[in-house]
Amino acid sequence: MYRPELIEHLVRPQNVGELSEPDGFGESGHAACGDVVRFTVRISNGTVAAVGYKAYGCAPCIAAGSAMTELIQGESIIRAAAISREDLRRALGGELPEGKEHALTLVLDALHRALEDYWNREAEEADLVEGYRG
């Protein structure tokens, strides 16, 4: 049903946890829907210096979160933000079973929220545009 790469991420998930005082925090999903993914990132010189993730839900959610942390670790923010569904799918060994593709959307959304949170904090700090966050 699932590819070995996905099972490997499920059984030995990477970068599990939450960074203290992260530069960016992003969460997607609802417990009521069955899946929640959360990323915390630390950014240094425009690159992802550290990432922590937590996930509750189906196996592909847990595995995709882990795979994503490996894909973005050490990458520039821009490259991290540009990671696509296809990149994530490939990291999990290929196509997901029918009805499980939502895991990719959820993980991408949670990461984008974490990066957006970082940019918002940066903007606030730089006192750029008032109300930018809105």
Partner: peptide, 14 residues
């Protein structure tokens, strides 16, 4: 509580 069955079944299978 706090765990979805699918992941648990697959982790046990491994």
């Amino acid at each position: 509580d706090g765990v979805e069955a699918e992941g648990l079944v697959l982790v046990l299978d491994a």
